[in-house]
Amino acid sequence: MKILLIDDSKTMRNIQKSVLAQLGYTVIEEACDGQDALSKVGAFQPDLILVDWNMPNMDGLAFVKAFRAGNKTTPLIMVTTESEKSRVIEAIKAGVNNYVIKPFTPDLLSQRIGETMSKVNKAAA
């Protein structure tokens, strides 16, 4: 499964990559903000996108809106913080399929990915 990881912090990307690696996902493309991500989705064709909320240039929410204007199906998981929880609905309305609060354990992320993918697969079936 190909995963696109969008976060402006290299440390965060590395942390998430290491969590994903523990879960057996190794085909990962990274983007440092929404614009960078938009430029990469076309070529990479991810099966799942993990997107951070707070980023310079184009934040996560703006990315989701822009991405969803052209792609309704690729699942998106918003990586967010406790303090942003109250805004998760906003992201869901914009088109994210699920969210996960930092810091997450591999188990939690695995669960969220599982949930998201099974729902998407069911919808596609």
Partner: peptide
């Protein structure tokens, strides 16, 4: 960003 990484 600092907080996010530190939490992990």
């Amino acid at each position: 960003t600092i907080k996010g990484s530190a939490s992990f």
